[in-house]
Amino acid sequence: MRSKPNAPIVHSTVSGTEAGGGSDAAEADLIERARAGDRIAFEELVRRHADRLYAVVLRFVASAEEAEEVTQEAFLRAWRSLGRFEGRSRFFTWLYRIGINEAKRRTERGPPSGQTVSMEERPIHDTPDPRQAPPAQAEQLELRAALERAVRALPVEYRGPVILRDVEGLSTTEAAAVVGLGEAAFKSRLHRGRMAVRKAIDSYLDVPSS
C-alpha cells in the first residue's frame, strides 16, 4: 500500500477500540489520521468494517473467494481516494458504496473463466444439509436456504435495499445513501424487493389463515 500522495507516512498505534465498535468520535479521528497518510489508522478502519462489507458484497458476487477479492479491492480504492471523502456521509456508507459498485462491475463483466455455476444454484454459506438435521432444525435450514435463493434472485436494484436495510440492519436513511437514492425511491424498491422475497418463501411462513 503506497502512502497517500502529498501526505507524509505516519506510523502510530491504535488503542482502546474493539474492531467494529468504538465511538463516532474515535472513528472520525481514525479517518482524519488516515487521510493524513497514517496507514495504521486506516488498518484499524479495515478491522472495524471488513467483515460487514464482505457480508454485503457476498450477496452480489459469484463466490466467497470473489467476495474477498472485492472487499480487498474496495478498501484499496477507499485508501487511494480517501482524500475525496468529505465526511458528509458516514465512512461505512461511503465504503459500502465503493464495495457494491465494485461487485456490480464484476458481475456485469461475467463470471471468471471456468466458473459456470448459476448464482441461484450456488450456496454462498456453508450451511448444514437440512436432510441431516432434526425436523425442527431442518425446517429452519430450509427456510434459510430458500431465503438466500430468494434474495439472490432479486434484481440488483431491489437486492441492495433488502440486504442493507433488512439483513444488515441499516436505517432507511443510511441504506438509501449507500445505493445513491432518495428515501422515497429507496422505500419503493425496498417494498418491491420484500414482496418478491415474501412470495418466494410463502410456503415456509405458516401464517394463520384467520
Binding site: 431465503l147 438466500e148 433488512d166 439483513v167 440492519g169 422475497v197 418463501i201 415456509y204
Partner: peptide
C-alpha cells in the same frame, strides 16, 4: 419475512 431476513 422481515424477521427471517434479519436472521440471514
Amino acid at each position: 419475512t422481515l424477521t427471517a431476513l434479519r436472521g440471514l
